[in-house]
Simulated assay, not measured.
Amino acid sequence: MAENRASAYGEGVPCWVDAQLPDVEAGKRFYGGLFGWTFEAAYGGSVWARQDGEPVAALAHKTDGRMPTVWTVYFATPDAEALADRVWAAGGQVVTAPLPVAELGTTALVTDPEGAVFGLWEPAGHPGFGRRYEPGTFAWAELYARDTEHANDFYGGLFHDALFGPDAEPDFGRAAVSDVFPAEMPPHFLVHFAVEACVAAVGSVQRLGGRVQAPPFETSYGKVAVVTDNQGASFALLERLRG
């Protein structure tokens, strides 16, 4: 497994997550209570969440109330513009063209051919997660797709080395939407955060005003529960398999 403290990410490796929320202060109370995060002001009115002083996520104010309240996963790339072009050529869509974010890097939002939204991150001053794979930090990104074979072809073409190469990292999976969600649920990425004990963390979510979408269930990579925060953003809690 990769070290918790990361300084660089190869193309196609999940390197950052953010939540678009109606109320950032309410988000700070929820996630601070759940994961013990501390917060500091960042670019554009957003805040960075830190675990043990290292950046692990961002909370941003949703500027358009018609937009969904969601967590988004960002995949690293050395060239966001070139990767956005490859997404388009492979049948995806470019939602937001590559845009510099101060001195931090360049970002874009895209979708796969089924409409699942994900971000691209070309780092400059901000390489991504300072910590991961430990309680209160990013642990996994699961794509819930209608056609998993098509998804494997699409992402395998974009991110072959990250998914199938000799240094592939175990933090991006694909599953059928109907495995966990109602069949009518749109394809989407679900960000997983590591916890020590899934059942206890679910109790904390409920006490903090969130709700349970799918109670704890077993997967090949650990025990997972799907929850929402106190504003409706979905995410998952992952208790890794021991040993």
Rank of each mutant, 00 (worst) to 15 (best):
Ala175Trp: 13
Glu196Thr: 12
Ser46Phe: 10
Val212Thr: 15
Asp167Thr: 14
Gly203Cys: 05
Pro113Glu: 11
Val227Met: 14
Ala82Arg: 06
Ala8His: 13
Val180Cys: 05
Phe39Ser: 05
Ala176His: 15
Arg66Lys: 13
Ser46Val: 09
Glu40Leu: 07
Ala2Lys: 05
Lys62Glu: 05
Arg146His: 15
Tyr74Glu: 07
Trp88Lys: 15
Asp179Pro: 03
Ser46His: 13
Arg66Ala: 09
Trp88Pro: 00
Phe193Asp: 02
Ala19Ser: 08
Pro170Tyr: 05
Asp23Phe: 06
Ala168Lys: 11
Gln206His: 08
Gln231Gly: 00
Ala176Glu: 15
Pro98Tyr: 10
Gln206Met: 13
Trp37Ser: 11
Lys62Asp: 07
Ser7Cys: 02
Gly173His: 09
Gly115Val: 04
Phe138Leu: 07
Phe39Gly: 02
Val199Ile: 01
Glu184Gly: 06
Gly53Met: 08
Phe172Gln: 01
Val17Gly: 01
Phe154Pro: 01
His192Met: 02
Val87Tyr: 06
Ala19Trp: 06
Glu184Ser: 14
Pro123Val: 04
Gly36Thr: 07
Phe30Ser: 10
Glu169Gly: 04
Ala116Gln: 05
Ala19Cys: 07
Phe138Tyr: 12
Phe138Val: 01
Pro216Gln: 04
Arg240Phe: 12
Gly210Met: 04
Val180Gly: 00
Gly115Asp: 03
Ala89Thr: 08
Phe172Trp: 06
Leu120Glu: 08
Ala201Cys: 03
Val226Gln: 15
Val56Thr: 04
Pro78Cys: 10
Gly65Asn: 11
Thr72Asp: 08
Ala141Val: 02
Ala175Val: 02
His61Thr: 12
Gly209Trp: 02
Ala60Met: 15
Phe189Ser: 06
Gly45Lys: 01
Lys28Gly: 03
Leu120Pro: 08
Leu99Gln: 15
Leu238Met: 11
Ala26Lys: 12
Val70Thr: 14
Ala194Arg: 15
Arg242Thr: 15
Trp71Ala: 04
